[in-house]
Design a protein around this nucleic acid. Structure first.
Lengths: 332, 332
DNA sequence: TCTCGGTATGAAATCGATTACAGGAAAATT
DNA sequence: AATTTTCCTGTAATCGATTTCATACCGAGA
């Protein structure tokens, strides 16, 4: 079943069938109807590989991520794929498994399959590999990573809004002693979050004591250890903001271990809104960046706007209020 | 950059280049070296679409799942992709979002891109769509779903082993009153799990009182409600086996709400080992089916064995012991 | 009536591989 | 030395689309 059979059945040339299928040139109504009927009748659909060969467009987009089993990514992937399919495009997913050298294989796979664009959402980058893509004129979109240029777009995450909302939420509950437990200082995104926190405090006219900034590691144990130290202070914070949800879980464990309650004694706010967060006890109040939006935006940046030169797209973080935050305890 | 340029540079025909690249026919050592040098020098890699067109093999495999953001799937996808890439194959992922009618689009996408095989891991199936794939001679592998036939393989999950181990574990801790909280009876996999449980009890010579079989819904609330009812019994179970981990979480909540402790008063065993389980308090003892193995096996079933007719592959469930199980409490 | 311009269509080249077939050279057999 | 094999290589058809270019047709304007 190929375009020639349709052409024969409809009594036209293959060129005309192609025109009907793709709408690339005007076709007389009666001819079009004959062709459509033939297509319908024989259940024809074009061979996409032949199509790619002929046109140079593969109708496929690449999505390079660190690791699909990192809970951050499934939602991103899902929505990237969803909108791609809505636009008749296919998706190629590649995992680097956090290994920079794997990036090479990923880029190679993208080149071999002739993707029409690539979304790169890993922190491990090899500049020369990116250059290869650029040279080939393949549109690229990065997630929260530096440079915008011709054919290069960027999805920027604006934490400020979400963090402001969180601080507003806490101050409206009469919290004035708000602490922060950071992630590993080596991680850019962890530093960005801490800065967003400090900026938001300043905007509110609150000051930040260095005792109230702990260092975690974005895992449970780090959050727990940092919080244990903070609980030894003579004047304890009434609320704690954690750099990610796992850290927040550690914070909560330390609080519980000290015989205190969340949120009655200390309120806790997380960051990320991993699935887990809503299942915790208490369910975690957290700042979330819509992963669905990241996926959707990344695709449209490549697809809709790929004729234009690259651009930056801002995505706002939002506050999700659950039950780990409550009025500041007055008796302490 | 195409095969002709390489041929020219190496002073051979395109046929010879193709032979060197694919190893499809013997080539004299000296010729091969010239060709390889040319390839190296010009940084050539074949256009996979042209390749597909010429050979009929796309070197792509499809993976149809319900929803990548269902925590069951990321690991499966990851390992399916990993082994596929190791074999130089590409992967096309399609989500049905649990909607049977979406299956049509998924199958269509697979056909358009000419996949060499499809792994279908959804419970929503449309027999006539499957038939289309069969007619096209495309190898298929299902996950735990009925029929094996020519070109049709099946990954079978053998719960018995894991459940036996769990029951062994509990009886060795002196538990004799073991209850079960099921999933929704409409779900095949939920029924299979319940049967595996009942069989294992029988093998151990334990009897099962109907009071000790509660009905849940594979969500937290269902587990909680079922457990609340069970806690009203005058003779309570000393251990509870839940049909999935969320149910187990509900069970634990009910136990805590009743002022009892896990595992000191009642032991709890889950099913699935979702990521969450190790973060719970206490970390959950659970029966796990290796999702990595499912992914790997599904691919090899399609790739390695696709010359043969279909086959069934068994995957054993295993017990993961954590801290939600302990010695049976004697004083009750 | 003749020419012009626009629209609809077809013929054929093209994309970049694979592969069937043919043929030449070298090695093995008689 | 003649013949048969074996091994290597090239020619050209093929896969199934897209797309350029040429052309036939039609109605409009001169």
């Amino acid at each position: 079943m190929n375009i020639r059979e349709i052409a024969k059945k409809a009594g036209v040339s293959t060129a005309t069938v192609s025109r009907v299928v793709n709408g690339t040139a005007p076709v007389a109504l009666r001819t079009e109807q004959r062709v459509r009927k033939a297509i319908e009748h024989l259940g024809y659909y074009p061979n996409s590989h032949a199509r790619t060969l002929g046109s140079g467009k593969s109708q496929m987009y690449g999505l390079i991520i660190s690791d699909i089993s990192n809970p951050f990514f499934p939602d991103v992937v899902k929505h990237f794929e969803q909108i791609a399919v809505e636009h008749g495009q296919e998706v190629l997913i590649a995992n680097t498994n956090y290994q920079p050298e794997r990036m090479k294989t990923c880029v190679r796979r993208m080149l071999e399959r002739k993707v029409d664009g690539v979304a790169i959402m890993t922190s491990e980058m090899e500049p020369e590999l990116i250059q290869i893509l650029k040279n080939r004129g393949i549109p690229i979109v990065f997630l929260d990573t530096g440079d915008v240029g011709p054919q290069i777009s960027n999805i920027l995450i604006d934490y400020d809004h979400g963090v402001d909302m969180a601080i507003d939420h806490l101050t409206s509950l009469e919290h004035h002693r708000i602490a922060f437990v950071s992630g590993p200082p080596s991680l850019t995104s962890a530093r960005t979050r801490q800065e967003a926190f400090l900026k938001a405090l300043k905007r509110k006219g609150l000051k930040c004591i260095s005792d109230y900034v702990g260092v975690g590691n974005h895992r449970i144990d780090g959050g727990q250890a940092a919080m244990e130290r903070m609980l030894d202070l003579s004047v304890k914070p009434t609320a704690v903001f954690a750099s990610n949800d796992l850290t927040a879980i550690g914070v909560i464990r330390a609080i519980h271990a000290a015989g205190l309650r969340v949120p009655e004694d200390i309120s806790v706010v997380g960051f990320d809104d991993i699935e887990l967060s809503s299942f915790l006890e208490p369910p975690l109040t957290t700042v979330r960046v819509s992963r669905a939006e990241i996926g959707t935006r990344a695709f449209t940046a490549l697809y809709t706007e790929n004729k234009n030169s690259g651009a930056a797209f801002k995505i706002q973080a939002e506050l999700v209020v659950r039950q780990s935050t409550g009025p500041a305890s007055i008796n302490r």
